[in-house]
Amino acid sequence: MLSIFHHIGKYFLLLGRVFKSPDNFKLIRKQIIHEMMSLGIGSLGLIAIISMFMGAVVTLQTASNLNNPLLPAYLIGYATRESFILEMAPTVMSLILAGKIGSNIASEIGTMRITEQIDALEIMGINSASYLIFPKIVAALVFIPIIVIYSMFLGAFGGFIVSMYSSGMTIESYVTGLRYDFRAFSIVYAMIKTVFFAFVITSIPSYHGYYTRGGALEIGKSSTKSVVYTSIVILIINYILTQLLLL
């Protein structure tokens, strides 16, 4: 139990170092752009495939469960939209990104630690925590909300494709459902969640990578731990924010 508090304390101390004023804004800006390319653009393909297939499956499952003639067919599109905006895009995609981006960050920083690259930065008088972690957090805060919106559209599009080829629903009823009773606050809610998740997805793996000790085996362990803890924290934050924002 004490170990948990030790890690939480160490995590916040590291964040204190991350948000100290950077040594050189020009280099940090360059790093932010680099991180956006590697963490953000690099995830678009995976998110596109997952979102479209999940959108298609959610649509099919909803259609198979709504076979009562008293229920209007447009509810299929409505259910797909709501599940994607409220949960699938922000939470499930964040969990997927925690696996992809999180393990990447933990192993990258962990390797830099054990190959003394972080020591090299420190000896040059550079705040290594700020130089390495701050650009990743900023890049994630900017790019992950964009990825989540992209996922919402592609999820709905996946359902649209299915509605073209499946019996029991029409394109018109699916599109009517997508537009039915739309509340802009759902998007705001999803974006608030996403910003918190983006912070967690980058900061927790950075912490695990930064304090890696040992060799290749420990890098693997750090990477695994970072994905596990990030996922748990995302689920806890998801519950707390839903309670606060929706009820």
Partner: peptide, 9 residues
Amino acid sequence: LFQGSALFD
């Protein structure tokens, strides 16, 4: 100069 060079990969 580090033992493993510590060049940025």
